[in-house]
Design a protein around this nucleic acid. Sequence first.
DNA 1: GTGGAATACATCATATCACGAAGTATTGCG
DNA 2: CGCAATACTTCGTGATATGATGTATTCCAC
Lengths: 105, 105
Amino acid sequence: MDIQLKRGLLDVCVLAAIQDGESYGYRIIKEMKPYLEMSESTLYTILKRLETAGMLTVRTAEHDGRLRKYYRITERGRARLAEFREEWKEMMTVYRFVIREENGK
Amino acid sequence: MDIQLKRGLLDVCVLAAIQDGESYGYRIIKEMKPYLEMSESTLYTILKRLETAGMLTVRTAEHDGRLRKYYRITERGRARLAEFREEWKEMMTVYRFVIREENGK
DNA sequence: GTGGAATACATCATATCACGAAGTATTGCG
DNA sequence: CGCAATACTTCGTGATATGATGTATTCCAC
């Protein structure tokens, strides 16, 4: 998919991946892969950004001798998802503008 | 609208604005405004980029003593629009992944 | 007839951001 | 032992949207 198009989905996609309960980086990537591929460096950048924005919280825990960071969505994060749904309506309006001519085919 | 979300639409939106016949910068902005707002500097940057990519051609003509640049879509530009429609299908898949939980409400 | 809005385009600096590359460290399997 | 998988981090780079600013003309209101 076009990178630019992808950009708008990355953040909300990560939030969506933890909306049912906490998860961790490596698992999030695997879970999202069928829908949207992203590199590890991208994901961890996004997770940091979302944390800074108060959209998720982090806790570190040991699992099989390895450290894992578990991410949990916050109210603000859920609000972002709700906002996204509104923005999507605008997206659809623009989409119809873009494809209008080929519509009659 | 969220800037990141907007990014994926800007280029195709400009192409869509000239798909029915040539137009010029100032008019494109006005025409797109109800759907997607962009600053002038953004538009002219995009027009230059699309020209470099061979998705549109430019001709300069005088109109009421002022110079205008008229932009015309190319075959490659139309191909980009067609490609966008395919990408949109992927976008819809991701969209459904994002809103899946709230769907049942 | 002067000032300001509208028309029309250009350039520059800046901030954001996705990503590849590379690294660290452990577990588990053949 | 070696290699894949797990798990996270850091750095540099390139792309890009935008505000600020500038140039130049036309048209309308006062």
